[in-house]
């Protein structure tokens, strides 16, 4: 019996020493000291030991158990210390690392710009309205003083659904829709998609966005148009922005103008971005043509107004210094993440 216990003890010690890690050590413990362990089975065999020898054997078994338990405990502490050491090493915290990124997604740069524009005009009492993108020729052209066979129709490279329905080439199509409702005064902006059959390149896209503005009331003047767009440009690009109105031609406004703002990159000194001119064209505008008012049932002798159209992509590209329009429609995460 004594030999048997000595063997168990030796085996256990060997197993403990060779165990790598806390789990292995636990297995050893269960193997020797557990309910069905080797040492326990020795105790179970006590009934076969002569009664006079039992205390002796019992003490021997207990000594063995204690020795094993002691070694397990010592080993366990060693292993735990090593484990801690390892974990400390592994999990060193570098406080100079950037904080973990928030998981929020990113808004499309077009929409960020659009919301900014909307806020500016809502602040000035403008209602934001929408109109259909697939539109009657009437609203897209005729009601805007562009009769059938007008060359402007060709100039705009229209997509046709049939000869009387088009993909709107301009958000100006919303003008007549709003005016013919007959609720005056009108003070709206209308953002949305427009389409022209331009091949895709760095500055053209067959699908793009415009923001139309329309104000109709008694006594609205070209001076009001100038003042309004000046406020708009300064809010969008900064107080030091200067605005230049150049005479231009649109069939639906008279007088008409194109508007340049000082290049926000070089502040008007001239740079690559503004082709060294110091100015960047951002929109077209003018006083609503009397024919347009008349066609929508508004008396041009009583009411007058102004309209303007801004290319959303254009102002977005400038604002974020993006040099290729195609990036806006590729939805590459590396691009979108920057906004």
């Amino acid at each position: 019996m004594k030999d048997k216990l000595q063997k168990i003890k030796d085996d256990a010690f060997a197993a403990i020493k060779s165990s790598e890690g806390l789990n292995a050590l636990n297995d050893v413990r269960v193997n020797y000291l557990g309910k069905k362990g080797l040492l326990t089975s020795v105790l179970k065999g006590m009934k076969d030991v002569a009664p006079e020898d039992r205390p002796k054997v019992g003490a021997l078994v207990n000594d063995t158990r204690e020795a094993i338990e002691k070694l397990i405990e010592e080993t366990k502490q060693k292993l735990e210390a090593a484990e801690m050491e390892r974990r400390l090493k592994d999990e060193v915290i570098d406080v100079t690392l950037p904080a973990r990124k928030s998981n929020c997604g990113h808004r499309h740069p077009n929409i960020i710009t659009l919301e900014e524009v909307e806020d500016i005009f809502i602040g000035m009492g403008y209602e934001v309205v929408e109109g259909p993108e697939v539109e009657y020729d009437y609203y897209n052209f005729e009601a805007l003083n562009i009769p059938a066979n007008h060359p402007a129709k060709d100039e705009q490279d229209t997509f046709y659904i049939n000869d009387k329905i088009v993909l709107r080439t301009q958000t100006s199509s919303v003008q007549a829709r709003v005016m013919e409702q007959g609720k005056l005064p009108i003070r709206i902006i209308s953002p949305g998609r427009a389409f022209r059959s331009d091949e895709v390149d760095a500055t053209h896209s067959p699908s793009f966005h415009q923001i139309e503005g329309l104000v109709i009331d008694k006594g609205i003047t070209f001076a009001d148009l100038k003042g309004t767009l000046e406020v708009f440009a300064k809010k969008l690009y900064g107080e030091d922005t200067r605005v230049k109105f150049r005479p231009h031609h649109f069939p639906f406004t008279e007088p008409s103008a194109e508007v340049d703002v000082t290049c926000f990159k070089c502040k008007g000194k001239g740079c690559r971005f503004c082709k060294n001119s110091g100015w960047v064209e951002i929109l077209g505008c003018g006083m609503v043509h009397p024919n347009v008012l008349r066609m929508s049932g508004i008396d041009p002798e009583i009411y007058q107004g102004f309209a303007f159209g801004v290319g959303l992509e254009r102002i977005t590209l400038f604002k974020y210094e993006i040099d290729d329009m195609r990036l806006l429609y590729e939805n590459d995460m590396r691009f979108l993440k920057q906004f």
Binding site: I122, K226, E230, P247
Partner: peptide, 17 residues
């Protein structure tokens, strides 16, 4: 065009939104 004054529309106030 540059000599035309800059003003803001007067008249009835409207609610934006």
């Amino acid at each position: 065009y540059d000599k035309i004054p800059t003003t803001l529309p007067k008249g009835e106030a409207t609610m934006g939104g």
